[in-house]
Amino acid sequence: MTLNYIVFAASALLFGGSAVVALAWAMRKGQLENFQRGATSIFDADEPIGRVTDSFPGQKPKPAGGATKRS
């Protein structure tokens, strides 16, 4: 039974503690500011906002080099 109490205490500490750490980190790094920038962080120059990227465009015969260029 004592083991059960240890499990309770340990996971409560682990859980609450790490959540607070995560949150403190997020605020220190400014993650909770400037939401517009956050929304656009998944776009890049090769797949910019405004381009539909729903399907892999296949491997067009292309010059050497790993990058896939989209037409």
Partner: peptide, 20 residues
Amino acid sequence: DRGGSVERPIDPERAARRRF
């Protein structure tokens, strides 16, 4: 503002290579 924000690579070729 199609390129996204300023500090991202603006060269599509480079961005595509990284994604690959």
